[in-house]
């Protein structure tokens, strides 16, 4: 569980920063916010490849293709853990750990002897990220219970194969937004808020499991519950 270990490191760094700059009392919002959610990450292509042979004299000049492949990292359900630290009424920093097991579907085409077989390669995918969250206080509704926010940050991606060996790593830039709704808002407890959160993110991935080493984009959506304390 390398991803878990790394998330703790990131969280510690984020908390350190938070403590250093958090002069403002974050009031009754609760300084520390813990969240756990489930969601989905959309798929994206990971590239194609052609198995070409050198043609003999008098045959196709463009080369002889034995077969071609196209692969796609398919959409997958995902788990998401968040640890946030409120710096002010508006700003917070968050560390996150995401886990999913997407399938890489590979379609073989153009093989005169093999038809069009499909290969399935399941990956374990971890993303550790750090984000800045901006709460849109001007847009609060339902007596302050409903609070929209914007989020953006950077992540580190690790993808493992069925034997838990690393097959690829990469970076992820994400940006998005969502809403938090406080279901319970006690005033006389160390628990400050308990609520639900919905969030949509756009992801730009560099490297990772990709046969063409191209930048890929995808979308993720999560629904989670959160607990804000202190």
């Amino acid at each position: 569980m390398i991803g878990g270990g790394r998330s703790l490191v990131v969280a510690a760094v984020v908390l350190g920063v938070g403590l250093a700059v958090s002069a403002l009392p974050a009031a009754a919002q609760g300084r520390l916010e813990l969240g756990v959610g489930v969601g989905a990450v959309s798929g994206h292509p990971v590239g194609g490849a052609d198995a070409t042979l050198t043609p003999n004299t008098g045959t196709a000049a463009g080369g002889f293709t034995l077969f071609s492949t196209e692969s796609e990292l398919e959409a997958a359900t995902a788990l998401d853990l968040r640890l946030g630290w409120r710096l002010s009424r508006i700003f917070a920093v968050e560390a996150g750990l995401g886990y999913a097991t997407p399938n890489v579907a590979t379609r073989v085409t153009g093989d005169a002897e093999a038809g069009s077989p499909r290969l399935d390669t399941v990956l374990s995918q971890w993303i550790v990220d750090g984000s800045v969250v901006a709460h849109l206080t001007a847009l609060e509704a339902v007596g302050g219970r409903l609070r929209p926010f914007l989020v953006g940050g950077l992540g580190y991606l690790r993808q493992l194969d069925a034997s838990s060996a690393l097959v690829a790593s990469g970076g992820v830039v994400h940006a998005g937004g969502g809403v938090k709704y406080a279901v319970w808002n006690p005033t006389d407890s160390w628990v400050k808020r308990v609520g639900v959160r919905a969030e949509l993110r756009f992801l730009i991935r560099n490297d990772g499991f990709d046969f063409e080493d191209r930048r890929r984009t995808s979308v993720s959506g999560f629904a989670s519950v959160f607990l804000a304390i202190f």
């Binding site: 692969s71 890489v104 590979t106 002897e113 093999a114 290969l119 399935d120 060996a165």
Partner: peptide
């Protein structure tokens, strides 16, 4: 036998 492929990508 017919041409075949391994069922998954091998790293």
């Amino acid at each position: 036998f017919r041409v075949g492929f391994a069922s998954r990508i091998v790293t």
